[in-house]
Design a protein around this nucleic acid. Structure first.
Length: 107
DNA sequence: AATATGACGATGC
DNA sequence: TGCATCGCCATAT
């Protein structure tokens, strides 16, 4: 209920991430107008796992799956990304710029 | 009310 | 090029 307004926004944007695409926490934060609070986006994702939010499509600006530890399995996040056609090596997305999806730019 | 933490980001060295 | 430090801002305790 209106208590997690910030979180809600993050969830909405994360849900809008197209299939086979990824984005960064900072990009979402920037889109929400909270540029600088990229950490909040990550924190919001913490609860997004319980939701229907594809948090596996959200990584840090290095394209590194930093939050994979928060997923159920050890490499579930990586598997999900690979399932979408994204190459992941050593917890890092290959051709990150190519798969990068900027909410501000796309929306 | 204050302090510590955190799935980040940028800059400095 | 890689590691270390500071800054940001909301949540949790």
């Amino acid at each position: 209920m209106a208590n997690e307004g910030f979180f809600e926004k993050v969830y909405q944007v994360a849900k809008l991430i197209p299939y086979g695409r990824v984005t960064s926490y900072g990009a979402i934060a920037n889109y929400l107008g909270a540029s600088g609070s990229a950490r909040m986006v990550g924190w919001a994702m913490n609860g997004s796992i319980k939701k229907e939010v594809p948090a596996h499509r959200v990584v840090n600006r290095n394209g590194l799956l930093t939050g994979k530890h928060h997923f159920q399995g050890t490499n579930l996040m990586q598997q999900l990304l690979e399932s979408e056609g994204i190459q992941v090596v050593d917890n890092k997305i290959q051709n990150f710029e190519k798969y990068f999806w900027d909410p501000m730019k796309e929306l």
